Amino acid sequence: MTDQPALKPQRPFFSSGPTAKPPGWDASKLQTESLGRSHRSKLGKARLKHAIDLTRELLGVPDDYLVGIMPGSDTGALECAMWTMLGAGPATVAAWESFGNVWIQDAVKQLKLADLTTLTADYGEIPDLSQIPQDHDVVFTWNGTTSGARIADTDWLAPDRKGITINDATSAVFAQEMDWPKLDATTFSWQKIMGSEAQHGMLILSPKAVARIESYDPAWPLPKLFRLKKGDKLNRAIFEGATINTPSMLAVEDYIWSLEWAKSIGGLSAMIARADTNAAIVKNWIEATPWLRNMASDPAQQTNTGVCMLFQGDWYESLSDEGKANVPKTIAAKLEELHVGYDFNGYRDAPPSLRIWCGGSVEAEDIRRLLPWIEWAFAELQAGNL
């Protein structure tokens, strides 16, 4: 029998979204002057613009790109990009996990694109992206939030490609470098890497994306929340803090605090380094643990954020499908009960698995303390004690 570990994580937050608040976070540290004020007041717009400017600065977004706050989290921002830009020519939507498959369903069932190609791969794998024609608009997920597989590079995107490139980067930004010159519409939510509150997304547009929006009117109706144009031109006020609908100023202040924290520790490079360190701890442990394997088999495609792992071995394989599904659920539930680790069960649509968030808001020592507890819970499960 494995002895119960002595140390628990000080902050047992390992959810892949909303993710852990940055170290030192406390609600009392948030600025509250904007609360109870109109988001269209001078102060409200200034705080929204500050969030936009900090995002641009930290991510190194090119000066001629636009950064805007959108409703509906990453989903709202990504679907806005699809609804306003796709349909002008052939398109390919590539998916290798849950959210990418949602974008495929949007393209097939909602937009009903006439000239559409879909590329898919199983969880942990990535399809051959080099087969996507350069004249196609393309929608892809940079980092598989629910599979732990990320693209290894952007060599498959030509610098002068004709098509628009729409990039769902929600669990990649602030942890992985974005190849901005090859990206036309990039989206993410505050709730992922920065550990901020949900329901707000970001939309980053290249000059090429702006040209597409201004020159193209899609055949389908656009909900108000997706309307980026004023007349025949892009409504640039959206990218200066005049949001389409009313945002939560409390969530805005929470996001600003997280951005300022990231800046204080060294910015993007420090955030990437923290994620790399955290992910290496988990990956090395998986490799040394015979009853686990990384869901992403190719090391070049293994994420440094939501690391996903599958169970293996004779005991596990002897279980029924229901028994296999219960293994990660039971381990995660027991460690939540003991306040050791919260919300690290695999995604509901993914194969039975565990998923540990390793983004920069998580402390490495907390991850080190979590892993022996997983070993203990697995041993207890095998022994019939859980």
Rank of each mutant, 00 (worst) to 15 (best):
L234W: 08
D184V: 04
V138D: 12
L30P: 05
W261M: 11
W103G: 01
A158R: 14
T305H: 06
A107R: 04
Q134C: 04
A198N: 10
G148Q: 09
L371H: 07
A377Y: 04
V102P: 00
T154N: 14
F13Y: 13
A209M: 06
Y316W: 03
F226A: 14
I126E: 13
A325G: 12
K182R: 15
V327G: 05
G24C: 06
K329D: 02
A270K: 11
P71K: 03
E363Q: 15
A379H: 04
W315G: 00
D217P: 00
A6D: 08
I244C: 04
L292V: 09
D254L: 03
P223N: 08
L268T: 01
A175V: 03
S189T: 06
G201R: 12
P90I: 12
L35R: 02
V362M: 11
K283T: 13
F378I: 01
E33L: 05
T19S: 15
Q302P: 01
D155H: 11
R40K: 10
L228F: 12
D321S: 13
A279C: 05
N101F: 11
G72I: 10
G163N: 10
E317M: 12
A211L: 08
D135W: 07
Q31T: 02
G44I: 00
L335C: 10
D168F: 13
G36V: 04
D232W: 02
W376Q: 02
G36I: 01
P181S: 13
S353Q: 06
V173F: 09
A209N: 03
A332Q: 06
G24V: 04
A51M: 02
H39V: 00
S98K: 07
H50R: 12
I331T: 02
A280F: 00
P127F: 12
T32S: 04
M82I: 13
T243A: 04
G346V: 08
W376I: 01
S215E: 14
G60C: 09
G163H: 10
T243Y: 03
L319F: 01
I367M: 11
S320F: 03
G267E: 07
E380S: 09
I286W: 08
L386Q: 05
S206P: 06
A273L: 07
S98F: 12
N278Q: 08
N101K: 12
E337P: 06
P352N: 03
E125A: 15
A152W: 11
E177S: 06
E380Y: 00
M202A: 14
D343L: 11
R47L: 01
P9E: 05
